[in-house]
Structure formats: structure tokens, C-alpha cells
Simulated scan of single mutants.
Amino acid sequence: MSKNKKSARTREEILDVAWALIPRKGADVSLAEIAKEAGVTRQSVYVHFGSRGGLLMALVQRADERFAIWEAMEKALGEAETAAKLRAVLAAWFAFVPLIAPVARELIRLKPQDEAVAAAWNDRMDELYGVFRDLAVTLEAEGRLAPSWQAGKAADYLWAASSVQIWDLLTGERGWQGEEAAQRLTEAHLSVLLA
């Protein structure tokens, strides 16, 4: 095996171990613990990621790749009809949320006290906001936003009302099933935003 392939495999193994450890031990799990579980040295983790922040950023990017969220969003944005476009974007997001929720909860919990965690989380949420903004701009340009909405506020609403935190409140605190949460949130968003 070439050195590059071995290095890439080691990097993936470290990320997989971190993904498994964070829901069990929290996002403040140490790099030493991750290295030990992955069977590598702590120095190896630093070589691959540069810092704890680099590891966390790579971790959330790997989740994006593994679950192909941005490809699903791009496909959804390609829907011809406006309501179908909004439904498809929300379906892609709400299919992704349960997959990332265990790690996302930990990142959300730690971000106020950890700059690296905050940077990793904010990077991903900025990307999501960009999708919602593009969608809202399209809805506005097509005359499909309800009269009381402008694209910026509609994007803000979609981003906040579709958040992992809202999902957790409904599915965790209130006991909704995932499909029900996705369906009801989608219908609410369509009802609120579309003319």
C-alpha cells in the first residue's frame, strides 16, 4: 500500500473513532483518548489534523461527505416546481439531522466555551444557511414567498426553525417520531412561507 493511501486510511480511521467516541464521551474527549482508541499516537492525530479544531472541522466535513448532504441539497434545489424544491431541500436536511444529531448535540453544548468547536459548528451552519438563503432568494424571485416575507428573513426562519435544536426538542423532549417531525415541520414551513 502506498504511503498516501495508508495516510488517508489512518486519517479516516481517526475520524471514525472520533465520531464513535463523541456521543459516548462528549465533544470534549481528548485527542489522547481518540489516538489511543484509534491505535495511533497523539502526534499522529496532530500530523493529520494540526489541532483539535482541525480534527473537529474534518469530522463534520466527513459527516457531510459520508451522508452526501450537499449533493442531496443540490439535487433538491434542481427541482422545477417551487413547493417541490422547498419540500426536497427540507427532506434532505431532515434525513440528515438524525444521522448527525449525536455529535451535533455535543458540538452545540461545547461551542460557547470552546473556540475550535464553535468554528467547526459555525462553518457547517453557515453552509446550511447558504442553502436556505439561495432557496429563499429563488422563492422570492419566482413570486412564491408570502407577502409578509423577504428572502433574508425567510432564510433566517428556515435556518432556525429547521435546526438540530428544534429537532431535538420535538423528537427528544416531546417524543415525536422522526418521520412525523420531518413531515410536520415541512408542512409548517410551506404554510408559513409560500404565497
Rank of each mutant, 00 (worst) to 15 (best):
T171N: 03
R133W: 04
R174E: 06
R52Y: 02
A91H: 09
S2I: 07
K111E: 15
A136M: 01
E37Q: 11
K75V: 08
R52S: 05
S163V: 01
A141F: 01
M1L: 09
A182D: 00
L31F: 10
Q177G: 13
W70F: 15
A195Y: 01
A84Y: 08
K85W: 10
F94G: 02
I100M: 10
V192D: 00
T186G: 04
Q113G: 02
K3G: 09
E71F: 09
A104D: 13
Q165G: 02
K5T: 12
L107H: 10
Y157R: 12
Q165R: 10
Q113L: 04
A116K: 04
L169K: 11
A38M: 12
R62C: 06
R105C: 13
A27L: 09
G172S: 07
R109D: 06
F67S: 08
R24E: 15
V29N: 12
D28Y: 06
V137K: 01
R184T: 05
K6D: 13
E140T: 03
W167L: 10
I108W: 07
Q113Y: 07
E13W: 10
T138D: 14
T138G: 05
D64R: 15
W159D: 03
L110Q: 11
P112W: 09
A160H: 13
E12W: 12
A188R: 14
T138A: 06
P147C: 02
A155T: 08
A68P: 03
E179S: 15
S148L: 01
E115L: 12
A92I: 04
A182T: 04
E180P: 03
R124A: 04
R62P: 03
W159T: 02
E71R: 13
L185F: 13
K5P: 00
R66G: 06
S191R: 05
E106V: 08
D134G: 14
A35C: 12
V131Q: 04
D28K: 12
V103K: 11
V89W: 09
Q177F: 14
M125G: 01
L59Y: 02
D64L: 15
E81W: 12
M57D: 07
A195T: 01
D28V: 04
G130M: 00
R105H: 11
I108V: 05
V45F: 14
A27T: 12
G39Q: 03
K25E: 09
T41E: 07
L128W: 08
G130C: 00
A18S: 02
E180Q: 14
R24H: 15
E74T: 14
A32S: 15
L110F: 11
I166K: 14
V131F: 04
L99M: 10
L194N: 00
S191F: 03
R52T: 10
L107S: 11
G53C: 10
V17G: 01
